[in-house]
Design a protein around this nucleic acid. Structure first.
Length: 273
DNA sequence: CGCCAGGTATGAT
DNA sequence: ATCATACATGGC
């Protein structure tokens, strides 16, 4: 029987678990029939349930640590000032009101890197499937049939054909190469957290398959650098349509958060498109 | 069936 | 420097 622990957190009134987990920044959470979310983070398999201003965390397999979830979910950050900035721009206000309460998760840098390498020229449904199959292929089992995202040293044991077998297509060689570079220390991935934005981005883009978009994702979702706003095909269209002159000065420093609201709004079709 | 998806590497101008 | 194209795969 797997160890199970239960925790409770008090939430700010502007936090939405659903919108945070479904806005496209993460790929390993799934909504249950009762509205809770089950997913894998690090070595933990968990079930999260929001009831108004309370969040319940049931954790399986891992060790209990309130700190871990506060950091992952950014519960320790105050988003009120950020939100007041977004609300000054009509299109961002609309996006916020469409799906309020989004937090930028603090995700593992390595998992973020590989996940968004997989994301290129791909769709979210497929990305989630590929990540699940990759975890099953190479990751450590946490609970029955649930696997952690594989570490670099676990991935290097598989050749490109193995990595392709999970449906990763032409991205298999990127995954393989990135795993090797990080496992061998040629790319100092753990070290980028201490680097400037520019230095970190420089390190990341040395990896084949990592360009402006994927590196921005790692900076934003992995390192919490909120000024970085990944631009994908949805954002390209949306910026052209709604913000042709670029990000307004009002959102300077939090463009990544603005991007998250706008991306979700556009992708889910909140603007009627 | 054809088009598209959280892009990037590559080669041609 | 900028631009077009290929790339694997499956959801729709």
């Amino acid at each position: 029987m797997w160890l199970k622990t239960l925790m409770k957190f008090n939430l700010a009134d502007n936090f939405s678990l659903k919108n945070t987990l479904e806005c496209g920044q993460c790929f390993r959470w799934n909504e249950d029939s009762d509205g809770s979310f089950c997913g894998v983070v690090g070595k933990k398999y968990a079930r999260l349930t929001q009831c108004g201003k309370e969040l319940f965390v049931e954790e399986f397999g891992g060790r209990s640590s309130a700190c871990f979830w506060q950091k992952y979910l950014a519960l320790d950050e105050d988003y009120r000032i950020i939100e007041s900035k977004l609300m000054k721009i009509p299109i961002l206000k609309a996006a916020y009101e469409f799906s309020p309460g989004i937090r930028i998760l603090r995700q593992d840098v390595w998992e973020t890197l590989i996940s968004f390498i997989i994301s290129q020229n791909n769709n979210i449904k497929r990305i989630k499937g590929i990540i699940n199959r990759l975890s099953k292929l190479a990751g450590t089992e946490i609970c029955d049939g649930v696997y952690a995202f594989p570490k670099p040293d676990q991935l290097v044991k598989f050749d490109i054909e193995d990595l392709r077998s999970v449906g990763s297509g032409f991205r298999a060689r990127y995954i393989s190469s990135a795993a090797r570079l990080v496992a061998e220390g040629v790319v100092d991935l753990p070290g980028i957290g201490l680097m400037s934005d520019e230095a970190a981005r420089c390190v990341l883009t040395k990896i084949s398959g990592v360009g402006p978009k994927v590196s921005a994702c790692v900076l934003l979702y992995g390192l919490g650098r909120k000024a970085w706003a990944p631009v994908d095909v949805w954002m390209k269209r949306g910026l052209l349509k709604y913000l042709p002159d670029g990000w307004p000065a009002e959102v300077k420093g939090v463009e990544g958060v603005a991007q998250q609201y706008l991306y979700n709004y556009l992708r889910v079709g909140g603007d009627g498109s």
